[in-house]
Design a binder for these strands. Structure first.
Length: 460
RNA sequence: GCCGCCAUCGUCUAGUGGCCUAGGAUAUCGGGUUUUCAUCCCGAAGAUCGCGGGUUCGACUCCCGCUGGCGGUACCA
């Protein structure tokens, strides 16, 4: 069975980049009937943020990419003994060693190595400790554990997206796998956990590609089969730099607050580095994405996050959304939801801002009530007839309202411009606004008739 | 510095040697529909396929070099 995971660090909100990684891992697993799991990588106590895990889970759920183990995700800080045990197994097997070098010593070495143009690599004396008593002595004080990288040879990563990538083992550092506070580093913990969880495919961001040889080596040291790897292309900001807070809202919760729909975000993120190779279709639900997703269609190159594309997608989803969905989710009246669904609003927030403005009594120049091809007299006549018809309109819904206005046009021997235009301006106070029918459904009968009467008064 | 990844309209991308005088989407600009706006429909503009060498009858597509961008090089993930 295919099994993937998303393994965020609880250092803040779920960001676009992380969410896209989670989405792809989800799609890959689900497209093959597999499982998608969550693991919390909280091994860095300095960067740990309270309640970040809950917020990440909330964002994941909101997007609809819910992990199968959502009730009980694996949490690394609860497994410290496990990591320590495995680290010492490696020491015993001669694949790792205890190191007591101080940070100062290491930094000095590193500086010199960089200066002389070689890859920084730990070559300190701890690597060379041979006798048991030496090793035992080291363990008495503060220590860390390093994995022993080979001095020569190649390590080949066969990536699902990038193909074979070759690394020179001698350039790889003796990576620290257990820190002096007893916590494992990412490298150790993720290898142990992926093995234990039965992860078959590690789908993660490109920034991990360079450390994959270390992970491969670790699997080999433990005698475990390594999973397949797929490194996703980066997401860049408009300035082509790595997407970050500098670029404004980047977290999922920010986008939610700004009125983006999860469907739009999912559709948008899916197309960042992936496409269905089919020109005819651009709107995909999560279900449709799951059916279409193929890892071989994932791009190698980084993608720029274009907010305009997201806005356009969001406008579409807002417009085609199930009315009842919008109503219950956003607690709007049916008329108000209908107004949002008419289109033209890029975000829910923009739509709601308009709704709020609409609820206030409009102020406008009486002259704007008159359509360009009409006159003051016929406008007044149109409004009065409309007022009469609307007042006696029994069922307040778009069809009968439409009919009432049409009757006003017919009985008065008027044109649409003599009735629809002034009624609309009376309602919204604006030369550009949704149609009078849509506005009246949203506003309700009492308020609508009141505004039309107000307009007639203004023309006197 | 060293190692690695990447490179087609502003942006997301199609393209796996001839179907490409490079297609779609989005954004932009025109036109049409409509009482206005939005939606919708039609159209225009927009990429010497990063640059330079090869290979080939033929290269956006394959190879090499360069350049540029990005990532890694932590007791961060």
């Amino acid at each position: 069975m295919i099994r993937t995971r998303f393994a965020p660090s609880p250092t803040g909100e779920l960001h676009i980049g992380g969410a896209r990684t989670a989405l792809f891992a989800y799609l890959f697993a689900k497209s093959q009937g597999g499982e998608f799991l969550l693991r919390i990588e909280d091994t860095d106590r300095e960067r740990f943020v309270e309640r970040a895990t809950e917020r990440i889970i909330e964002s994941l759920k909101w997007l609809g990419i819910t992990p199968d183990n959502i009730e009980k995700p694996m949490i690394q800080s609860e497994r410290l003994e496990e990591y320590k045990k495995h680290a010492f197994d490696l020491v015993r097997a001669g694949h790792a060693y205890i190191c007591t070098c101080t940070k100062e010593m290491l930094e000095k070495d590193r500086e010199e190595q960089i200066k002389s143009g070689v890859a920084p690599r730990y070559e300190g004396h701890c690597r060379k400790l041979k006798t048991k008593s030496e090793k035992l002595k080291a363990i008495e004080g503060k220590y860390i554990i390093r994995m022993k990288m080979p001095d020569e040879g190649k390590i080949i990563v066969d990536d699902l997206i990038r193909g074979k990538v070759e690394f020179d083992a001698s350039l790889l550092d003796d990576q620290i796998i257990l820190k002096s506070d007893g916590f494992p580093t990412y490298h150790l913990a993720s290898v142990i956990d992926d093995h234990e969880m039965g992860i078959t495919h590690v789908i993660r961001a490109e920034e991990w590609l360079s450390s994959t040889p270390k992970h491969l080596k670790l699997y080999q040291m433990f005698g475990w089969d390594a999973p397949e790897f797929a490194h996703l292309p980066m997401i860049l900001g408009p300035d082509h730099k790595k997407l970050s807070k500098r670029h404004g809202a980047t977290s999922i919760s920010d986008h939610k607050a700004e009125g983006y729909l999860p469907e739009a975000l999912v559709n948008f993120m899916a197309f960042l580095g992936w496409n269905p190779k089919d020109d005819s279709k651009q709107y995909f639900s999560l279900q449709e994405l799951t059916e279409e997703f193929k890892i071989k269609n994932v791009n190698k190159s980084a993608a720029v996050f274009d907010i305009e594309k997201l806005r356009s997608l969001n406008e579409y989803y807002l417009r085609t959304y199930e009315l009842t969905n919008l109503k219950t989710k956003e607690r709007l009246t049916e008329g108000e939801s209908g107004l949002i669904k008419r289109g033209g609003y890029k975000t829910l927030k923009e739509a709601e801002d308009y709704l709020q403005k609409l609820r206030k009594t409009p102020e406008y120049d009486p002259k704007s009530l008159i359509f360009k091809k009409s006159s003051e007299e016929t406008t007044k006549k149109g409004l009065e007839l409309a007022c009469e018809k609307l007042s006696s309109c029994e069922r307040w819904e778009s069809e009968s309202i439409q009919r009432s206005l049409a009757e006003a046009v017919g009985e008065g021997g008027l044109t649409n411009g003599d009735v629809f235009w002034p009624v609309r301006v009376a309602l919204s106070g604006e030369e550009k606004s949704p149609s009078p029918v849509e506005l009246m459904v949203a506003l309700g009968k009492g308020e609508s008739v009141k505004r039309v009467k107000e307009a007639i008064k203004k023309l006197k």
